[in-house]
């Protein structure tokens, strides 16, 4: 579900790519500004659609949060201590957000080799995060804490799992954008990674929130 919109957003970002001078399918309003850096949200259909998607994804986690708060109040809640690899994972994910910003700036500055390098770093850090999450699950399982062990562990596996699912969707998008950067598919100076960066930062913020909910709150 999470990878689908990203694919379509890429398609829709260039609605008239079917041919030069094709007025037939170019949306009159949205056709003007999908690439414009500072255009308003309402003039930029892909960006608007992405924000809607992040809104509905947030509602999913709000639903989980209400369940979490209610379930925590029952008597059998035994708090779980966070596997220490989680803190490393957090650092990895936030670093990937930072390197992505670096790639974005290089791309805007038309420094394509540097943009590629920064973007490659972002991908490596993102994949490392996923690997780190798998290690966190395995370390818990090795300690005898499974999905059904207690409500806190159930929520831990559920919430981290749903977050990773969204992140895997982001990685599919990453590959698509990485290929585009390699193929020089952006016009010079274009902020081509803007949409992907918005989604990727959203995932980092979401992760910070989940960490707070699971282990601080």
């Amino acid at each position: 579900m999470s990878s689908a919109p990203t694919h379509a957003l890429d398609q829709a970002g260039r609605p008239s790519s079917g041919g030069g001078g094709g007025p037939v399918l170019g949306p009159p309003g949205g056709g003007e500004g999908p690439t414009g850096g500072g255009s308003s949200l309402f003039g930029d259909a892909p960006r608007f659609g992405l924000w809607l998607f992040m809104g509905t994804a947030s509602m999913l986690f709000i639903g989980f949060t209400s369940a979490y708060i209610l379930r925590r109040a029952s008597g059998d809640w035994r708090p779980l201590s966070a596997p220490s690899v989680l803190w490393l994972n957090t650092a990895l994910l936030f670093s990937s957000s930072a390197t992505l910003q670096g790639a974005r700036r290089r791309l805007r500055g038309s420094d394509l080799p540097a943009a590629q390098a920064w973007l490659a770093f972002t991908g490596i850090l993102g994949v490392s995060f996923v690997v780190g999450q798998v290690l966190a699950w395995r370390s818990l399982a090795a300690a005898g804490v499974f999905l059904s062990s207690n409500p806190h562990s159930s929520f831990f596996y559920l919430l981290t799992g749903v977050h990773v699912a969204h992140l895997l969707g982001g990685l599919v998008w990453f590959v698509a954008d990485f290929v585009k950067v390699r193929r020089l598919a952006f016009t010079p100076g274009e902020d081509g990674l803007r949409l992907f960066a918005t989604y990727w930062h959203f995932l980092a913020v979401l992760w910070a929130y989940l960490l707070f909910l699971l282990f601080v709150y």
């Binding site: 809607l52 509905t56 999905l147 059904s148 409500p151 749903v162």
Partner: peptide, 24 residues
């Protein structure tokens, strides 16, 4: 967009209760 995610969340938890032994 605002309402359906609540059912998505609940459905996932129901699947977990049914097949993976959780007690949501």
């Amino acid at each position: 967009l605002l309402a359906f995610p609540a059912l998505t969340a609940a459905s996932l938890m129901l699947i977990f209760d049914r097949h993976f032994g959780t007690s949501f």
